[in-house]
Structures are given as C-alpha cells and as structure tokens.
Write a protein that binds this DNA or RNA. Structure first.
Length: 228
DNA sequence: ACCCAGGGTCATA
DNA sequence: TATGACCATGGG
C-alpha cells in the first residue's frame, strides 16, 4: 500500500474544498444514528429516512419499543429501507444487545476495542456498521471503510483493490493518527462525493467511485484530480 | 428496462 | 478462506 499521510490529507483537502463540512451523522441522537447505521446497509439513505420517519411517527424510535414490537409490524415500518425482514431481525438483535448492555452510558465506559468487539458480536452488525456506530454515535477514533473508500483509493493507485477491510482501516488510522473530527469529516466527504458525482452524471464513465467507471478522467462537476 | 445503493450472513467447496 | 446466493425498496 502506497498510502501515506500527505496523500491522504491531499485527498481530504480536495474534498473539503469541493463540498465543505458535512456535519455528519444525519440523526439527532446516538440511538438514531445506530438505527440508521443498521438500516443503511447497502441501501440509499433517502430510503432509510423514510423508515426512520415511520418509526418516529409511531413513537417507536426507542430500543424498548423496537424489542416489544411484533416482527411483522416492525418489518412493515422498515419496508422503505429495503431488506425489511432481514433488517427487522437485525434491529431487534441490536436493541436487545443494547438494552442488555445497559444502554449508551454503560457502553460509553468501555474502551474502544472492547466496544467494537461487543458490537461485532451482534448478528447483523458487521465491520462497517460497527465502525459507523463507534465513530458517529460514540465519538471514537475509528476510521470507517466502505465500498467507496476502497474504490476511490484503489483507483488513485494507493491501495490494492482487494485489500481487506481491517487492513485498510488500520492503515488509515496508522497514517492519520487518532482524530475523531478528521475521521468524521473524511468518511462523510467520500460518501457525499460519490452521491454528488453520480447525481450529476449517472454512469458518466469519469468518476473515481462508480463501480463501472474507468479511472483517469473526470467531469467538470467533480473534483476529479484528488491527488493534487 | 437497467443500474445502483453509506453491507452482512449463511451455505457450500 | 473464499466465492456465491440471498435479502428488497426506491431513485436516476
């Protein structure tokens, strides 16, 4: 991996200049952020918002309420976010764990590695979901890796395309040093860059993030040369 | 009509 | 350990 601190910060600065600060995660409370992290798995955020709105409308955006709800009812509220049967089960799993563990205050006392392992022990919470929660709900210095991050830096020639999640996360954290504010903004900017480019020119063939786009050129609508 | 989305689990070899 | 199937709605 040719990853180094300077090249990472160069990309970060390009994105920050292009899009500005993002103030992530979209969500009012830590628990809402956690719910959003589960629901957004392989799903457009606009769909997640509708599902969360359904929960709020019924006063169900609470761990106890989700645990108590019938699974088929919960699945119907989650319907807009897709994979609703799977996500109903995952959300229940998560909430049972969350309540059992004593909620936010109790979990906040755990060190980051312990908390991460605990999150990963929940069926339905994988590495990215766990890291979203760690960074954005608990404010821990954990760099979130997603498909965009891997694609972007592999197209920039800085990491192998098939790099493992954990290897890439540790590489980012090693090069950048622990910095919650930077990690927060960086991941948000990568996602926003992907959305922006794709909204402006779907399947344009130019962007660095879309699966089927060759690297190398850029449209006028995105900060294409992120390495300068 | 097709492609994609802020993944994760499980069954198989 | 490494692929592949599966989950499903909604927007471009």
């Amino acid at each position: 991996m040719k990853l180094n601190r300077r090249s990472l910060l160069t990309v970060f600065d390009s994105l920050l200049t292009a899009y500005g600060r993002q103030h992530w995660w979209p969500g009012e409370t830590p628990f809402e952020i956690m719910v959003g992290a589960v629901l957004t798995q392989n799903t457009a955020w606009t769909n997640v918002e509708k599902a969360i709105a359904n929960l709020v409308a019924r006063d169900k955006l609470l761990p106890e309420a989700i645990i108590a709800a019938r699974k088929d009812h919960l699945a119907n509220w989650l319907r807009p976010s897709g994979y609703f049967n799977v996500k109903a089960e995952r959300l229940k799993n998560f909430c049972r764990w969350y309540v059992e563990a004593g909620g936010f205050d109790a979990l906040s006392k755990l060190d980051t590695a312990t908390l991460r392992d605990a999150l990963l022990s929940v069926n339905g919470v994988g590495p990215e979901t766990a890291d979203d929660i760690l960074l954005y709900a608990f404010g821990r210095a954990v760099f979130v890796i997603d498909a965009y991050t891997r694609r972007l830096f592999s197209r920039l020639g800085q990491v192998p395309a098939e790099v493992a999640y954990e290897d890439l996360r540790l590489a980012f954290e090693d090069k950048l040093g622990p910095d919650v504010g930077l990690y927060n903004e960086f991941h948000a900017l990568i996602v926003v860059h992907a959305k922006t480019v794709c909204r402006v020119r779907p399947r344009c063939g130019d962007c660095l993030l879309r699966e089927n786009c060759p690297a190398g050129r850029g449209s006028n609508d995105c900060p294409r040369d992120l390495s300068r």
